[in-house]
Amino acid sequence: MSSDGPSHNEFDFEFLGNTTGEPYSVQTNVYVNGVGNREQRLNLWFDPTKDFHTYSIFWNQRQVV
C-alpha cells in the first residue's frame, strides 16, 4: 500500500523465500512522510506454502499491527 508524492506513506509486507531447512520469514517496512528505516524481519513458526492462510493488518493513527 502506498500513497503518491515525495512525502509518501507506504506499508510493505513481503514473504521471503528460504533455503532448505531454514524458516520462512516475513519482512515489513513502514514509510511515513517518505521516511522508512522501520524494517523488521520475523521468522514464521509455520510453512506458508502448505495451506491457505488469512492475514490481517490493523492500523490507525498510532500503530500498525
Rank of each mutant, 00 (worst) to 15 (best):
T54E: 08
G17L: 03
Y24G: 02
E22L: 11
K50E: 11
F15I: 11
Q40K: 15
H8G: 01
D4K: 14
L44N: 03
P23G: 06
E10D: 03
Y24R: 06
F52S: 13
V65A: 10
S3N: 04
T28D: 00
N18H: 11
V30E: 00
V30C: 07
T19L: 11
T19D: 04
Y31G: 03
R41M: 09
G21A: 09
F11W: 05
H53R: 15
R62G: 02
T54G: 01
E10Q: 14
D12P: 01
V26P: 01
L16K: 15
F46I: 04
D47K: 12
T49R: 14
I57Q: 02
V26I: 13
N33P: 00
E39D: 03
Q40G: 02
Y31E: 02
H8F: 15
L42T: 11
N33S: 15
Q63N: 06
W59C: 13
G5K: 12
Y55L: 09
R62W: 13
N29A: 09
F46R: 05
G36R: 06
V65Q: 06
G34Y: 02
L16N: 12
V64H: 00
N29H: 05
Y55W: 14
M1T: 02
F11G: 01
R62I: 05
N29Y: 05
V64M: 04
T20H: 08
N9F: 10
F15S: 04
S2G: 06
D51I: 00
K50M: 08
L42E: 03
P48A: 10
F58H: 10
V26Q: 02
P6S: 13
P23N: 07
K50V: 13
W45I: 05
V26L: 15
L42N: 07
S7H: 09
Y24V: 05
N37I: 05
Y31K: 07
F15A: 06
G17N: 14
D51F: 08
N9W: 08
N18T: 15
N37P: 00
Q40F: 03
S56V: 05
Q40C: 03
W45C: 01
I57L: 15
S25C: 07
N43D: 10
E10C: 11
K50W: 01
Q63Y: 12
N60G: 11
Q40A: 14
F46T: 01
D4Y: 10
T28N: 01
D12W: 05
F46Q: 00
V35I: 15
Q63H: 07
F52C: 02
S2E: 12
F52I: 13
H53S: 10
T54C: 04
F58D: 10
R38T: 14
T19F: 10
R38F: 04
